[in-house]
């Protein structure tokens, strides 16, 4: 899977070669990959909401303005 090979890049030097069953390792590593992607998406979402909010307020203020 292409996405999973991204983990290897992000986790450079993080994995030790010791063979030891640790079911948490894969969860840690996928988290790093997902956080990189979802963090960006989250920022876009937050700023998009701010922009929408700004225009909504602008529209509201205009319609509230008796002089408009």
């Amino acid at each position: 899977m292409i996405a999973l090979s991204g983990i290897s890049i992000l986790s450079g030097g993080l994995l030790s070669p010791t063979p030891y069953l640790d079911p948490g390792s894969g969860s840690y590593l996928i988290q790093l990959l997902l956080a990189a992607v979802l963090g960006g998406a989250f920022l876009v979402k937050v700023y998009w909401q701010k922009i929408k909010g700004f225009f909504r307020n602008l529209g509201k203020r205009k319609s509230d303005d008796p002089m408009a």
Partner: peptide, 19 residues
């Protein structure tokens, strides 16, 4: 993807301080 990652890295260990 989480499940795939768990399977793929099941044998790996992570030093907590390095995470």
């Amino acid at each position: 993807m989480h499940s795939r990652s768990q399977q793929r890295y099941a044998g790996a260990t992570i030093a907590p301080e390095r995470a």
